[in-house]
C-alpha cells in the first residue's frame, strides 16, 4: 500500500509537469489542446538525439551521476530539449492555432489539435521507427527501504521528482512575483481589458507556449527515463494529463501540479481494487468523479 502511494506520487509528478503547461494554454486560449501530450513525445525524442550527440562529442559527459542512470549529457539534453520543444509549440501556434484564432473559429482549434497530434505522432514514428527506445539500457536497481512491507524506490525517480519540485517552485515564483505572472492572469480573466492595459497579448501567448512546451519536454524525458520512449507517448498520456488538468481546475497551475499527483496516486491505488485490465479507464473515472462532486476542479473558478 505504501509502495503504491510512493509510486503514485512519483509517476504523478510527471503528469503534473504536463498538466501545468496544458492548464495555462487551456486557460488563455480556451480550447482543449489534444496535441499537448505530443509535446512530451517531442521532448523525449529531442533529448534522445542530443543525449547521443553529447555522449559521442564529449565522452566525459557520458559518466553517470552518482548511482543514477542519468548522465550529465542527459541533463544538458533536457535543457536543449526544453528550448526546442518550447519553440515547436510556438511554431505550431504560428502555423495553425493563431490562424484559426484569427478567423474567430475558437471551437475549431480543438479539432485542429486532433489533426496536429495525428501528424506529429506519425512523423515521429516515421523518423524514429515504432520500436522502444531507451536513454540507458542499464537497469537501475531500486533501493530497498524496507523488506516487510516491501518498500523500494528508484534513485532516478527521486531525482526526477526533486527536479520537478524545483521547477514547481520556479513556476510559483514566476506566477506570483513577476509582471509576467500578473499579465498571464489578466489575459486569462479578460483578454480585451488586459490589452487595453498595455499587456501584449501575442507576447503573453508565446510565453505560455514556451513555458508549456519546456515543462512538457522535462515531463517527456522523465517519462522516457523511468518508463520507455516510443512514438505513442502522446496518445498514451493525453487522457491522464487531461485528467490531471481537470482535477486541478482549468487555469490553476497549482491545481495541475496537485492534479497530476492525484491522478498518479489514483491510478496506482485503483489497481488494488480493480483488475489491472481496467487501468486505462482510471483517468476517465477520475474525470467523472470530479465533474460530479467538484465541477470546476480543486482550484478552478466557476466560469460561464
Amino acid at each position: 500500500m505504501i509502495q503504491h502511494l510512493l509510486d503514485g506520487i512519483l509517476v504523478g509528478s510527471i503528469l503534473s509537469l504536463g498538466a501545468a503547461g496544458l492548464t495555462m494554454v487551456m486557460h488563455i486560449l480556451k480550447f482543449a489542446n489534444f496535441s499537448h501530450a505530443e509535446l512530451l513525445s517531442i521532448g523525449a525524442y529531442v533529448a534522445l538525439v542530443f543525449d547521443k550527440i553529447f555522449k559521442v562529442t564529449m565522452p566525459l559527459m557520458a559518466n553517470e551521476i552518482g548511482s543514477l542512470s542519468m548522465t550529465w549529457a542527459l541533463i544538458l539534453s533536457i535543457i536543449v530539449s526544453m528550448v526546442f520543444t518550447g519553440a515547436s509549440a510556438v511554431v505550431f501556434d504560428r502555423l495553425i492555432f493563431r490562424r484559426i484564432r484569427a478567423k474567430g473559429e475558437e471551437l475549431s482549434m480543438v479539432f485542429a489539435s486532433f489533426g496536429l497530434a495525428l501528424i506529429v505522432r506519425n512523423l515521429i514514428g516515421l523518423i524514429f521507427g515504432l520500436s522502444t527506445k531507451l536513454y540507458s539500457k542499464d537497469i537501475v536497481f531500486a533501493t530497498v527501504l524496507s523488506r516487510d512491507p516491501l518498500l523500494v524506490v528508484k534513485l532516478d525517480q527521486l531525482a526526477a521528482f526533486s527536479i520537478t519540485l524545483v521547477l514547481m517552485v520556479v513556476i510559483h515564483i514566476v506566477l506570483s512575483r513577476t509582471t509576467f505572472g500578473y499579465s498571464l492572469r489578466a489575459v486569462g480573466e479578460n483578454p480585451e481589458l488586459a490589452q487595453v492595459n498595455g499587456i501584449n497579448l501575442e507576447k503573453t501567448i508565446i510565453s505560455v507556449w514556451i513555458i508549456g512546451g519546456g515543462l512538457a519536454a522535462v515531463a517527456g524525458v522523465f517519462y522516457g527515463l523511468t518508463n520507455q520512449i516510443n512514438p505513442m507517448i502522446g496518445r498514451d498520456l493525453v487522457l491522464p494529463v487531461f485528467a490531471a488538468t481537470i482535477v486541478g481546475g482549468i487555469g490553476s497551475v497549482y491545481g495541475a501540479l496537485l492534479g497530476g499527483v492525484i491522478v498518479g496516486l489514483a491510478s496506482n491505488l485503483a489497481l488494488s481494487i480493480l483488475p489491472s485490465g481496467y487501468s486505462p479507464s482510471v483517468p476517465f473515472i477520475i474525470i467523472l468523479a470530479v465533474l460530479l462532486f467538484r465541477p470546476n476542479g480543486l482550484f478552478g473558478e466557476a466560469r460561464a
Binding site: 480556451k30 482543449a32 489534444f34 487531461f242 483517468p283 476517465f284 474525470i287
Partner: peptide
C-alpha cells in the same frame, strides 16, 4: 465550458 465535453467524450471512448 465546452472543453469538458471534448475531454469527457474522449475519455468515455477509451473507457
Amino acid at each position: 465550458r465546452h472543453d469538458y465535453l471534448a475531454i469527457s467524450t474522449f475519455g468515455v471512448a477509451v473507457a
